[in-house]
């Protein structure tokens, strides 16, 4: 049984996904937004309520999709790895991928497709460079299980974990400009202009990136 990559990677704070509000703050009002891996629709609902966006979602799990549609959200069942190619060029202002990249088969292809579909990308990832992760591996010699990565290696859906610096290196390859980055650590958010520092790569549990086609 696979464990939902979101619930295991998101880091809960009072039961809420703390990255959601950070993402919502970075979406232009009344814009057209695609949320890839939208889960139960919490972010889309937040964006509709706070930002008045025209939102669409793509979600792999049947129960997630059914919940979303029953809540009145425009969501289709589909797979980020295979279904993004069916979306039109520049069909959206902002394309969001929150806590999903690490669970895809081909993260670079997913990012490439996202950049084709929308000019602006918001991507949040768990940071495999976090000091807890590094210490776990160094001292215990075991795959890390942390607050942000709660599942054991054999049951995790996160098959493509990376550090914040790995991620920005991939952005360079894909000609994606890192506009800003927010790091999250134990419920505290830090806003950074541009890309994360080596220190941030050590201290952050999660990173939320705002990217633009270069």
């Amino acid at each position: 049984m696979m464990i939902d990559p979101k619930s295991q990677a998101a880091g809960n704070l009072n039961g809420d996904r703390i990255d959601l509000q950070l993402i919502a703050d970075r979406v232009a009002p009344n814009s057209k937004v695609l949320d890839i891996g939208c889960g139960d629709g919490a972010l889309l609902e937040l964006l509709a309520r706070q930002r008045g966006i025209d939102g669409r979602g793509l979600e792999l799990s049947q129960s997630g999709v059914n919940n979303c549609v029953a809540r009145g959200l425009s969501v289709v069942q589909g797979d980020a790895d295979t279904d993004l190619s069916y979306y039109p060029d520049n069909g959206f202002d902002t394309v969001i991928l929150s806590q999903t990249l690490q669970a895809t088969q081909r993260p670079h292809e997913v990012l490439r497709e996202m950049a084709r579909i929308g000019e602006r990308l918001i991507v949040s990832i768990p940071n495999f460079g976090h000091w807890r992760v590094r210490l776990d591996l160094l001292f215990n010699g075991r795959m890390p299980v942390t607050g942000a990565l709660t599942a054991s290696w054999y049951e995790t859906a996160n098959i493509h974990l990376c550090t914040l610096r790995d991620f920005t290196a991939l952005c360079d390859v894909l000609d994606l400009q890192v506009e800003s980055c927010i790091t999250l650590s134990y419920g505290k958010a830090r806003s950074l202009k541009g890309r994360p520092t080596r220190r941030a790569n050590l201290m952050a549990e999660q990173g939320v990136f705002v990217l633009r086609r270069a």
């Binding site: 979303c68 549609v69 425009s74 289709v76 979306y87």
Partner: peptide
């Protein structure tokens, strides 16, 4: 239905799709 939904997405239409168990 998936063929239809992909076409609707390609057309930029507002579409929801649910497969019922």
């Amino acid at each position: 239905s998936i063929t239809l939904v992909r076409a609707l997405n390609a057309a930029g239409a507002n579409v929801s799709f649910v497969e019922i168990e």
